[in-house]
Simulated assay, not measured.
Amino acid sequence: MAATTDTLNDFLPEALRFTAPAELVDIGANLTHESFAHDREAVIERARTANVTTLVLTGTDREHAEQAVELARQYAGIHATAGVHPHDASDWTSELQTAMRALHLQPEVVAVGECGLDFNRNFSTPSEQERAFEAQLGLAVESGLPLFIHERDAGRRMLDILHNWRDDICDAVIHCFTGERDTLHGYLDLDLHIGLTGWLCDERRGHHLRELVGDIALERLMVETDCPYLLPRNLPTKLKGRRHEPALLPWIVREIAYWRGNDEAAVARATSDTARRFFRLEDR
């Protein structure tokens, strides 16, 4: 059922109804999250109204990857990734590897992931994480798809692994980058891409990113909400429920442009061009 005007407008206060100066690509939207179950279509329509015209839905495990593929089949401008998050690396089996391989053959799937390392919480052990990550690196080589990578508090080990695989994989993006300067430059030295989120807008922990955004060439930079997580803390008004959504991506782009000293429209165009090229969306 189509979303009504009332449904579209009743969630976002007027002060948060942004419109990007150029079409945006949100490279990391968790629209399969249960918090979107009751109004997902309205969320997608609000994104389009904000000029966020393309969404890449993150598949963090088999179930959510399959759901992302189904949504990509239903809505124009939506694509999916398929992978196993490091939190769930202990679930990795040969059967799951076979299922992921099949998902990567689906035309709706544009990247392998979300996969990687998270040594912050260690819901799976580091050895389990590395095993699942390297298996998915192998799947990326098989499929020729780019990688959508999660890394938190594991920069040194991630750099070691990616250095060993760099000649075999094609492209990779470190999504929701939150690391330090040395880690960032290590990724850039490997010709990797960087995804930035509302973490930049967090006065408690994002200050260091504001000093680093200028180090990332626009042809290596992409933008994402990682919704429903990481709602920007510096929005001009409060949002009921604290659920993030793609319609707020223009605010993040505005912040990135400010801290880079760039024109907002130029950042919007460049990051979208980079995302379309990275995920090969022109061919889809």
Rank of each mutant, 00 (worst) to 15 (best):
A3G: 06
L8V: 13
L12G: 09
P13T: 04
E14R: 04
E14A: 15
A15G: 06
P21E: 11
E23Q: 14
G28H: 10
H38Q: 15
H38P: 00
D39Q: 13
R40P: 09
V43T: 14
I44G: 06
R46H: 03
T49A: 15
T53M: 12
T58C: 03
T60Y: 00
T60D: 00
E66T: 11
V69E: 00
E70P: 05
R73C: 08
Y75A: 11
Y75R: 06
S90D: 10
A102N: 13
A102G: 10
H104P: 02
L105F: 00
L105V: 01
P107N: 09
V109N: 03
C115F: 00
G116L: 05
G116E: 05
F119E: 00
N120G: 03
T125E: 10
T125H: 09
T125K: 13
E130Q: 13
L145F: 06
P146D: 01
H150Y: 10
E151M: 13
R152Q: 09
G155F: 11
R157T: 14
I161L: 13
N164W: 04
W165E: 08
F177P: 09
G179Q: 09
E180I: 05
L184H: 06
Y187E: 07
D189I: 00
D191I: 08
I194E: 01
T197Q: 04
W199D: 03
E203R: 14
R210G: 05
G214L: 02
D215C: 02
D215I: 01
E219R: 04
L221F: 08
P228R: 08
R233P: 01
L239S: 04
L239N: 05
L239P: 05
L239I: 04
K240V: 13
R254Q: 14
E255P: 00
I256D: 06
E264M: 12
A265I: 02
R269E: 13
A270T: 10
A275N: 09
R276H: 09
L281F: 11
E282L: 08
D283W: 06
